[in-house]
């Protein structure tokens, strides 16, 4: 009886020590779920979800504070992926899905106020005070955050045109057999 208790106690101590050691040794920095969620988000940093960037939104989703359908740039596909990852029900998107777009500065109207540069979350606008600004198209995420600060409304959003390099083969359409 006593020996049995001793063995159990010893086992508990050893296993507890092993678990304690493992929890220190294999500690995961950060929340891996947040990283997984963030990898699905489109990184436009547009704030349309109500959070200041994709990471805060990912954190809010991970904590269960935010819904998964708040990201319009991610679209219905993004919602589906998040639903798959989190085992939640896919929901219709809260917002309007737009085709991919980039901002374009009308360089004749631009007064060089730098307000859009400060608003751009991804440093895609170059320019200096009282100098014309321009948008580096390849870096622009199409977040539209530069639109409201512009005092002369010289920024417009342009849908991204397909080129020979970005063109995609279409999904083969199955023709239905005509009956009579």
């Amino acid at each position: 009886m006593l020996i049995a208790i001793a063995i159990m106690a010893l086992g508990a101590v050893v296993l507890g020590a092993a678990l304690g050691f493992a929890s220190v040794k294999f500690k995961v920095e950060g929340d891996p779920l947040v990283d997984k969620i963030e990898a699905i988000l489109p990184q436009t940093q547009c704030g349309q979800c109500g959070y200041p960037g994709c990471k805060p939104y990912a954190e809010a989703i991970a904590k269960g504070e935010a819904d998964i359908n708040l990201c319009p740039p991610g679209g219905a596909e993004g919602v589906g992926k998040l639903a798959d990852l989190l085992g939640r029900e896919a929901k219709p998107l809260d917002g309007v899905e737009k085709p991919p777009q980039v901002a374009l500065i009308d360089e004749n109207t631009c007064i060089g106020c730098t307000l859009c540069i400060q608003a751009c979350p991804v440093d895609a606008i170059v320019g200096a005070a009282k100098q014309m600004h321009t948008i580096v198209e390849s870096l622009c995420t199409g977040c539209e955050l530069c639109l409201p600060p512009c005092p002369v409304e010289c920024i417009t959003m342009e849908p991204i045109q397909e080129t020979v390099d970005t063109w995609k083969w279409k999904y083969p359409v199955v023709e239905l057999k005509r009956v009579a």
Partner: peptide, 17 residues
């Protein structure tokens, strides 16, 4: 391509912050 662009945007966003 999108993934690469998103990663680039993320890096730049974090750097800006």
């Amino acid at each position: 391509r999108d993934k690469k662009a998103a990663d680039g945007a993320k890096t730049r966003f974090e750097f800006k912050q």
